[in-house]
């Protein structure tokens, strides 16, 4: 029954989207164009002068009402997107207004700011439904708290509760305050199950602020085995500027290959932590076409 409901919802969404997409297709060749340059891409520098070579696309944001839980109204009215590629890598610069910086998810009611790029084959309406069993999609997800972990060190309990104190934890090493990962032996990790089983959200040492995911339909999003995406986000003066980058031709077979001169389906999502955005509670663009120059 659940499957039938999901398929029905997806079909309704796809029919309405197809009308929308047909209109866009008729208007222009592509909604977002990735400009080819010969330089090294500014994959961790949202303020690089090189971004001036990319065309800026202003994309209206909409609500997420395809699947529950919904986000009835978008947190931001629009975002700006630029894209560059150099034959080996592709990078997106996403900027949007956000009056609050939400880069900690330690407390129960703290949610992160974030942005994501969805990539899938062109002409497939199922892409906005996060793909299907036979049409997987890739999602590159930048997270503000992961960025903060990298920029300032892992944010543990003590970052949210400065007066926090504890005498000991099982199998912990050293003296209080015990911090991850240094004071925690393999035996101590047993008491942090998310870390122990390898959940990417629970790893105290983040090597990237961008998580590569694959999805085959609503609710199926999964961290890819091979992680190669990089990026960086900077919040200044009420605005996030976030770079999300990956290889055009990754060697792992979970990623869609991006070939120069070809078009792809794409969509962008924004999470506003201050609004409680998380998971499906997000602002999204329509399904767009991406042209890789």
């Amino acid at each position: 029954m659940k499957k039938i409901v999901l398929i029905a919802v997806a079909l309704v969404a796809l029919v309405s989207l197809s009308v929308l997409v047909y209109g866009i297709e008729a208007r222009q060749a592509a909604d977002v164009v990735s400009i080819r340059v010969s330089d090294a891409l500014p994959v961790t520098d949202p303020h690089s002068q090189l971004w001036s070579k990319a065309t800026e696309f202003q994309l209206p944001m909409g609500s997420q009402t395809i699947i529950a839980p919904v986000k009835p109204a978008p947190s931001v009215p629009y975002i700006q997107v630029r894209s560059l590629n150099n034959g080996t890598h592709i990078a997106f610069l996403i900027t949007w207004a956000d009056s609050t910086k939400n880069d900690r998810t330690v407390k129960i009611d703290e949610f992160r700011d974030g942005s994501a790029v969805l990539l899938g084959p062109v002409g497939e309406m199922a892409v906005l439904a996060m793909g299907t069993a036979t049409i997987p999609v890739n999602v590159l997800h930048w997270k503000a708290d992961w960025q903060a972990d990298i920029d300032t060190g892992f944010q543990g309990v003590e970052s949210a509760f400065p007066n926090f104190w504890v005498d000991m934890y099982p199998n912990v090493i050293g003296e209080p305050p015990y911090t991850l990962p240094g004071n925690f032996s393999d035996a101590a990790k047993l008491y942090l199950p998310g870390w122990k089983v390898g959940n990417s959200f629970s790893q105290p040492l983040k090597v990237t602020s961008v998580e590569e995911n694959r999805a085959r339909g609503f609710g199926s999003l999964a961290t890819e085995q091979s992680q190669g995406a990089i990026g960086r986000g900077i919040w200044e003066n009420g605005q996030w500027s976030v770079v999300i980058a990956r290889q055009l031709h990754p060697s792992d077979n979970e990623d869609i290959q991006l070939i120069s001169g070809e078009k792809y389906s794409t969509a962008f999502a924004i999470w506003d932590g201050a609004s409680g955005d998380v998971g499906a509670r997000k602002s999204i663009t329509a399904l767009l076409t991406l042209y890789v120059q």
Binding site: P69, T105, V106, K107, I108, D145, G156, V157, A160, L180, L192, P193, G194, W195, N199, F201, S202, V278, G279
Partner: peptide, 22 residues
């Protein structure tokens, strides 16, 4: 770590881990 379960459970028995963020 979406916390939809914490929000939904009427008895509030799923709990969010500060450290593992799930």
């Amino acid at each position: 770590g979406y916390r939809e379960c914490v929000r939904a459970c009427p008895y509030k028995k799923p709990m969010y881990n500060h450290e593992t963020r799930i």
